[in-house]
Amino acid sequence: MTLTMIERKNSSKLLLSVQNLKIQYRKKNEYIEAVEDVSFNIDRGKVVALVGESGSGKTTTALAIPNLLPANAIIKEGVILYKGKNLIQATHEELRAIRGKEIGMVFQDPTSFLDPLMRVGDQVAEVIVKHESIKKKEAILKAKNILEKMRVTEPERIYYYYPHQLSGGMAQRVVIGMAIACQPSLLIADEPTSNLDLTVQAQILNLLKALNHELGMSILLISHDLGVVSGIADRVVIMYAGRIMEEGDVHSIFKNPRHPYTRALLVASELGEDMVKQQNDFPSDLLSSSSGCCYRHKCPYVMERCKENPIEILLDQDSRVYCWLYSNES
């Protein structure tokens, strides 16, 4: 279906390609769809943002890439091609070799992602020892070096701190250090600045941007905040209820949003007054009926055709939207 897009890409530039991903969660004997027919690409050196609200499946999609999904999640369909290799079919050993080495991960609420009983520097050194055949001593030196690159003040001292002694911003620098210690080609950052202060958020995003520019690291940024996205992303993928609504260049998403949901998100991100009239805030999972556009219950432009599943509509060079409003344009 979306293979057209992949073919268009120069394959040497392509780092990651997610194709027709479908993921379900098992709850007792029920199956809940979390991600449905999600496809997108990440080129080398690019920052791609997956944007959506809670229940949109953005985090599930991100965790599926290095296969870190919880045990009750099942990948029903799809291909995750990383440097030409399908990660869904990779063995445990192959995945472990890729995690931390090829794909690094950064999370929301960084302090909880650090082992409370281990010195933070050792947690950075741990990943180096794991993937690079060097001695512990060298790994410690390297870890201190990385902390310094993460702009941790006094890395020599902070190395020996325990997680509870760090502020949120400092903990996030350590977690980013852990993620990039082995210079991965892809960094997945799941809401990396969500609970941080504004000034700290700007610093952390600046750091991520520097990693992208200086090391050419590709970043998959997961966020609910279009503001954060505007400052760092090259491409934006908008998700709602487990499906992609729209994808495009950051400029086209912000300057020329097509999908009604993208527009609603943009207005909401300004907290402006000219909000499109909205219905109740039902949790989106209640509405993910098996057919039809999942946004039609909230959409101000809803029409009869929306009961059918929207198809992918390619708009221009490389943006696409899943909305019947644009069926004539293609």
């Binding site: 794991k130 993937h131 977690v175």
Partner: peptide, 26 residues
């Protein structure tokens, strides 16, 4: 099931390493 174990998995540690290096002490 704690987040630090998720982070350890994301680093490429095996379940065994997570068990002995992180989970056991905690």
């Amino acid at each position: 099931s704690m987040n630090y174990s998720v982070a350890a998995r994301a680093k490429g540690l095996s379940e065994r390493e997570i068990l002995y290096h992180h989970a056991l002490r905690n």
